[in-house]
Design a protein around this nucleic acid. Structure first.
Lengths: 205, 205
DNA sequence: TGCGGATTGTACGACATAGTACAGATGCCT
DNA sequence: AGGCATCTGTACTATGTCGTACAATCCGCA
């Protein structure tokens, strides 16, 4: 599963459901005019292909690989049968679908009422949650698309977080140095879906 | 079902699933610090209580009555049994749950990359879709909370739309005069979930 | 009929982000 | 080792929205 691979193409039948073992996938909402913005990210905690769980065969959104990794995938038809037969599987996946909704709602909240620096901190935390180690690849340009802001704005915001000792940036990479401070910088933009995830899914293991 | 009635309280067990016959409900994402912003609205096209469909008993979001109307409600336990027994019901509700996800994602997109005037136009269109007639009650103050912006900003934006002959505003009310123009003003912020709704649900009737 | 709360209109400086442009730095590939 | 595409740093003006304040208007209720 390499970077920029498309796991779910927009408006085409969803062929597989993916469960990531590592790496991160981004769900991007797009409009006919070509605006794009990230609404939800998924790592090994979730599933790629929520529409299939909801009996929807295609979606206007695109899901692609943001950070490369390994994935287990199931063919769509088999997946459908599987959740038909196994209620407990359907149940846990439904819980994840709900957490994904909360994350998307959190993105809406954040985009609408948080400053760039807070939104950036939120985004970095969500990535950090889903990778091994403290460093992951990401460019300012990419971030600007995901957050829906200017690229130089990202550069400035990164400098600000870096100046406060929360992260360390090098070309095409960001390293989280002080997660606690980063959380403080994210303020209340981070945490709601994460808490619910713990309540609904992780606790049930 | 009167204005400001709370249909689903934050972090409390969801007692009922509602199906509106008229009126509109708003789902609001909130943070511990008290930020609030609307992420999704529902009228007679959908259901209130998607979490229960996903086997989730409570949610950090609040859903309240934005425009009064009539509602049919089902007790949570009965609803659970119902969707257990009737796959076709579960199926159609799952489709709606997905449309709600698209709407929430659309809100994230709009909040992140559209100007206030476009966002306001989108919001008015979504309300207009869900009421009988062309007029509905709404104050600038309320809109400012829902959109996550300043109240005077809403006033200005409304004047702008009004000046273009798209709407007519009077105290506590807005009337849609020219839906076509309003759609143009909303640009690509409006339409994606609506199209999918037609594909998935209305076509299946 | 007049009072008072709610709603709307307007103003103004402050500030964040947009849009754009370009130079410098990095690191991969030949 | 050099060339080149990519990425990052910085600058500048323009503009939209913020935060705040206050006046004007509306309308239900005493």
């Amino acid at each position: 599963m390499g970077r920029r691979d498309i796991l779910i193409a927009a408006n085409k039948p969803i062929t597989h459901v993916h469960f990531l073992e590592s790496g991160i996938a981004s769900e991007v909402a797009a409009t006919p005019e070509g605006r794009r913005i990230e609404v939800c990210i998924t790592g090994r905690e979730g599933m790629i292909g929520v529409p299939l769980l909801l009996d929807v065969d295609r979606t206007p959104h695109e899901t692609f690989v943001q950070i490369e990794g390994d994935t287990l995938r199931i063919e769509a038809a088999i997946f459908r049968r599987l959740i038909e037969d196994r209620q407990s599987l359907r149940r846990i996946l439904a819980h994840y679908a709900y957490v994904a909704h909360l994350q998307t709602a959190g993105t809406a909240l954040s985009n609408g009422s948080h400053a760039l620096e807070e939104r950036l901190a939120r985004w970095l935390l969500m990535c950090h949650d889903r990778v091994d180690g403290d460093e992951f690849p990401v460019t300012h340009e990419f971030l600007s698309t995901m957050l829906g802001v200017r690229r130089p704005g990202v550069t400035t915001a990164i400098h600000s977080l870096e100046g406060a000792g929360m992260i360390k940036a090098r070309r095409s990479y960001v390293q989280v140095l002080d997660r606690t401070k980063l959380k403080a910088a994210a303020g209340d933009s981070y945490g709601v879906p994460e808490t619910e995830y713990r309540r609904l899914i992780r606790s049930g293991r």
